[in-house]
Each structure stands twice: as C-alpha cells, then as structure tokens.
Design a protein around this nucleic acid. Structure first.
Length: 490
DNA sequence: TTAGGGTTAG
C-alpha cells in the first residue's frame, strides 16, 4: 500500500520540446558555428527578459541577435543556473535555450541535477517531473538526482511522493538497495517524517536489512523532533541487530542535549564514550564547543579547545571556524584573528568559505566594515573562494546600521550583482526592504519589492506589512495598492 | 549513505 502510490504526472506538459525544435528550424543560422565563439555571462544575463514565462524566455534568447555567437558550454550552463537558482522561469528558459544553442548539446549530469533541484525548491512539481522523465528516457537519472527529488518532496510535506520515487527506482535504472533506502530515510528524517521513515524500514526489512547507517539516520530523526526516548530506544534496537552504537550515534544524542542546554548530560555522555572505547572525535567536540558558545559559556567552550589539543583528534576547518566564532562572540576579536592568521595555517588547515563568512560577520558585528571588505578581497586572491550572497548579509546589515544607505550600499550591491554575478535571494531582499523602510526610503524599497515579485520570490508577510505602512505614510497609494494585491495572494 | 559551523528576517 505504502509503495503503490504514484507521483502525479503532468497531464499536459507546458513545455513540449517539439515546439522549440520548430523554432530552431525557423532560425537556420543558429546551427552555423562561428569560429570565435566565446561565453560572456554578463551578456547572457542582461538579455534574459524579466517577468516572462520560461518558454518566452528561451524563445527570446534564441531570437536574440547579440547571443548568436555565444559559446554554450557545461561550465556556462552551470554558472547561469547557479545565478538563477531562485528564479525557476529564467533557469528553465536558459536550460532549454542551451539545448538548442549548442550543437548536439547534451546537458551535464550536474546541470540536470541543478535544474531538478531548482524546480523542486520552487515547488514546480510538474516541471520537475517532466525533466525527470526526460532524464529517464535518456538513462541519465543518478542517485544524486533521486536524492534531490526526494529531499524537495519531503521538504514540501509530500513524503508519500518521496516514497513513491523509491518505488520507481527500477524504472530509472537504479537499484533498490540499502544505500537508496538510507537516502530515502535520510530525506524523510531530515524533514521530520520520522514515523513514516520507521514504517518504511519495517516494510522493507524482509528485502533490505537495515544497516548501521539506517539506525543512525533514525536516531538523528528522533532527536531532531525532540523525541529522545525513541532515539535511545533506537540505540537499543541497533544493539539487537548486532551493531554497536558508534561515535556518530553518541554525537547525535549529545547534540540533542546541547540544543536543550543540558550540559551535565553532555559531560556524562562524553565520559561514557571514553569508558566504552568509543572516544569523542573532532565532530563531537565541535558540536559541544559551539553549543557552549551559543549559551554564552565562553570559558567552558575554550576549555574544550585545550581538550582537543590534548586529544588525538585532528582539528579541521569546521573546528577552527567554531573556535573563531567562540572568540568573536566573546568579544576577543584579536584572538580570533590570531587563530585565523596563525593557528590555522600552522595546523595546515585551509580556510573555507565559512571561515571567511565567520570572520566577515565578526568584523561587521564589531563595526569594522573596512576590515570585512578587505577580507573579501583576500578571500578571492589567497583563499581561492568566491563570496556568496550570505557573505554579504552582515555587510549589508552594517550599511544600514551606520546609515550608509546611498553610496556604500549601492557599491556593495553592484559588487554582488555585477562583479560576482550573485542573485539576490529572499533574505537579501527582506534585509534590504526592511533596512530601506527604516531609513525612510520606502520608494527604493518598493522598487526592490517589484523586482522580487518579478522573479517569483515570495516576500514575507511581515515585509509586506512594513512596506505597506511606510508607503501609506508617504501617500504612495499606487504602490501601496500593489503591495496589498500581493498580500491578498499570500 | 549516517553526526558538527556561519550569514537574514522577526
């Protein structure tokens, strides 16, 4: 019964390929390859029409003279899809356009996975299904594809659909094995469907015996929804199957107690781990250290650093990031910089994007915006990582805090969009609209509001309320009506 | 294929 349900198929796919091939035939010059074809991301991005359907977008791109000599490569598609990850219409339009532009162009595995994920996260289920069916017919469905589909379905509450994807695995040319079962369970549990995951385990037990991962996934699921008794009971069940609880099982339970601030329990468990020959590792320590910092217990958190040094654990980037975070929160900026500049390199651990995000946020938090900007330059040149929208949140927030809502804000936005090709996401729009409203610039906030609506990014209700109030106060009634219209649809 | 971090809004 559980596995008999079928994911809805599109009754009338809105994007038939035949239609596009007709338009390709109508523009024969497209099939002629020029010798000097290059790829200019800015050019393509600038030619993507706004507020159009995906079909219109791909059509407009195909007919665009200035894009005739554009070289479409896998890397180009990757960058474009990343850029439009919050804007499914543009993403799908570009995806279709690329198929028609490149001669005998076949999308890469990554591009397929990306478009599936974009359609899933924006809840375009029929279109996601359509791509999945295309992939199936070309035998290009991978484990990662299925994982993305299941995750998006579970995340949207469609756990039954996620389960029926598992039922379809053979149609996709994939095997129903423990790995795939665990993938399904993990997506279910991470979205809180733990009881459903347990039913799946029981139902599949005769065909696919649970392994150590299966139990750890369930333990994590129970902890996530605060059902610690079931988590402990799962540990007993695990033993019954002949598996010893691992450092992962213990660390998961420890994380639960950390989240609830029950640090005496944490200490007891750390001792138990040592005694039972399953000593904590760097992940366990990082979890506890971070939780202590969040509970403002900085001295205890830093004492753990000493414990790590005395142990055999190899510190990694996540550990250093947490250490820097602890020091930042404790107001010890100089010490944090010392860890970043000396301790990390001395241990041979390279900073990653999160290290830079943590440092940036710490600087901004302490009013050192210039140092934060300088670090952004540094991260590209010597760190080899590119900033993401999240990197800019603290910087943008600092702009509003300092009242620099003209030049500095514009420069930052320009850097984000034009230099790094980042797309503003829901959080950025919310931050900007809230900030501009508070800075008495609701006219500019409204422009951004319209822009996000055009990209199908749904504003938060509170954002609408705030903007509406401000617009009414300034007697901008036309704009206020527009906001009210959007609110009615929320 | 299972466990850890940061960045937004309220």
């Amino acid at each position: 019964m559980l596995f008999a349900r079928i994911l809805r198929r599109p009754r009338n796919p809105e994007f038939p390929l035949s239609h596009l091939s007709t338009s390709l035939a109508a523009t024969p010059s497209l099939s002629v390859e020029s010798e000097n074809r290059t790829f200019d991301l800015d050019l393509v991005v600038s030619q993507v029409p706004v507020r159009k359907g995906c079909e219109e977008i791909s059509q407009a791109l195909i007919e665009n003279e200035s894009l005739r000599d554009v070289e479409v490569s896998h890397d180009a598609v990757d960058r474009l899809l990343t850029k439009f990850r919050d804007d499914w219409k543009s993403a799908l339009g570009i995806f279709r356009w690329a198929e028609l532009m490149g001669r005998r162009f076949e999308h890469s595995e990554e591009a397929y996975d990306m478009i599936v994920d974009i359609l899933g996260r924006t809840r375009q289920w029929d279109r996601m299904r359509m791509i999945l069916d295309e992939m199936r017919s070309k035998e290009r469905v991978r484990v990662s594809t299925v994982g993305k589909v299941m995750r998006r379905l579970s995340g949207a509450g469609r756990w039954e659909d996620a389960v029926s994807i598992f039922d379809e695995l053979q149609d996709f040319g994939l095997e129903k094995n423990a790995e795939m079962m665990n993938l399904l369970l993990d997506t279910l549990c991470k979205e809180g469907w733990v009881e459903q995951a347990r039913s799946v385990v029981l139902e599949l037990k005769p065909h696919i015996p649970p392994d150590e991962h299966t139990f750890n996934i369930l333990i994590n699921g129970w902890c996530k929804i605060d059902r610690i008794d079931e988590a402990k009971w799962t540990i007993e069940e695990m033993k019954g199957y002949g598996f010893r609880p691992s450092v992962i099982s213990f660390s998961t339970i420890i994380r639960f107690y950390c989240r609830h601030g029950r640090f005496q329990k944490v200490v007891d468990l750390l001792d138990e781990m040592e005694k039972t020959g399953c000593p904590p590792n760097i992940v366990t320590y990082t979890t506890v250290m971070h939780a202590l910092a969040k509970a403002d217990e900085y001295e205890d958190a830093l004492a753990l650093v000493e414990r790590v040094k005395a142990s055999r654990c190899e510190p990694d980037a996540l550990f250093f990031n947490s250490w820097i975070y602890v020091l930042g929160r404790a107001g010890r900026v100089e010490d944090a910089v010392r860890v970043f500049e000396l301790e990390m390199p001395n241990s041979g651990v390279l900073p990653n994007l999160s290290t830079y995000n943590t440092m940036t946020s710490m600087y901004c938090h302490h009013g050192e915006v210039l140092k934060a900007s300088a670090l952004l330059e540094h991260m590209e040149i010597s760190g080899g990582c590119k900033p993401v929208v999240q990197t800019y949140y603290p910087l943008l927030k600092a702009c509003f805090k300092m009242g620099k809502t003209d030049v500095l804000l514009s420069e930052l936005l320009d850097e984000m969009v034009n230099k790094h090709h980042l797309s503003l996401d829901l959080s950025t729009y919310s931050l900007l609209i809230h900030g501009l409203c508070r800075a008495n610039k609701c006219d500019r906030a409204f422009v951004l509001f319209e822009e996000m609506i055009g990209k199908d990014i749904i504003p938060r209700y509170q954002t609408c309320c705030l903007l509406l109030d401000e617009l009414k106060q300034k007697c901008l009634f036309y704009a206020a009506d527009q906001v009210e219209d959007v609110m009615k649809r929320l």
